[in-house]
């Protein structure tokens, strides 16, 4: 796997999170309750459901990441993906030939979650995530490991966890934006 600069990776992740936040602040928090609940044309998820789904992962990952991070100014300033980590990120990335996936049971949203509450929680989580990405500038992204939400037996490198977690959000923010 290719080795990249830690600052380059974190800059890119920060700007992705910033753009997800922009969607929430300029659009989602200002639309009507009806639009928040409206299913997509193909009977897909509403904006409220997309955000509920994203938030359900934040409840696990944000504390798990915060707990795993040990800031150390002398830590290595590069990052290398593991093949499994890179595979997860590729799976999440929207784009050509993107596969429709079925959500895991604990992450399948109810029919009509409280839209306003989900928008507010989404914004709160993204602000926390920005703080973690900032702290991560002093953390070894390769040696620090975080267990994935599916199984505590599978641990991935922090740099990979950040990447597939943010890519997963990007996928569903884009999905939510298609309902606007």
């Amino acid at each position: 796997m290719k080795t990249i600069k830690r600052t380059a990776l974190l800059d890119q992740l920060e700007s992705e999170v910033e753009s997800h936040l922009q969607s929430a602040i300029s659009v989602f928090q200002n639309v009507s309750d009806t639009l928040l609940q409206q299913q997509s044309a193909q009977n897909g998820w509403s904006i409220a459901q997309c955000l509920w789904h994203i938030n359900s992962y934040g409840h696990y990952y944000l504390p798990a990441i915060a707990h795993a991070m040990k800031p150390d100014a002398a830590s290595r300033d590069t990052f290398t993906s593991s093949w499994l980590g890179a595979y997860f990120t590729r799976l999440m990335k929207p784009g050509e030939g993107m596969k429709k996936m079925k959500a895991f049971k604990d992450h399948t949203p109810p029919l009509q979650p409280d839209g306003r509450a989900e928008v507010a929680e989404f914004i709160r989580q993204q602000e926390v995530l920005l703080g973690l990405l900032r702290q991560a500038r002093q953390v070894d992204l390769t040696r620090t490991k975080v267990a994935i939400s599916l199984s505590r037996w599978i641990k991935l490198r922090l740099g990979d966890v950040f990447q597939f977690y943010v890519a997963h959000q990007g996928r569903h923010v884009a999905q939510a934006m298609r309902n606007v």
């Binding site: 929430a24 602040i25 300029s26 928090q29 200002n30 009507s32 509450a117 507010a120």
Partner: peptide, 26 residues
């Protein structure tokens, strides 16, 4: 300002609960 900042800060500024802020928005 509604499109620029998370509403929770606006709600806090005018001293109301974020939930009430959403209700007023509607």
């Amino acid at each position: 300002i509604l499109q620029l900042v998370p509403h929770k800060y606006l709600a806090n500024y005018i001293g109301i609960d974020p939930t009430n802020f959403s209700k007023l928005m509607n």
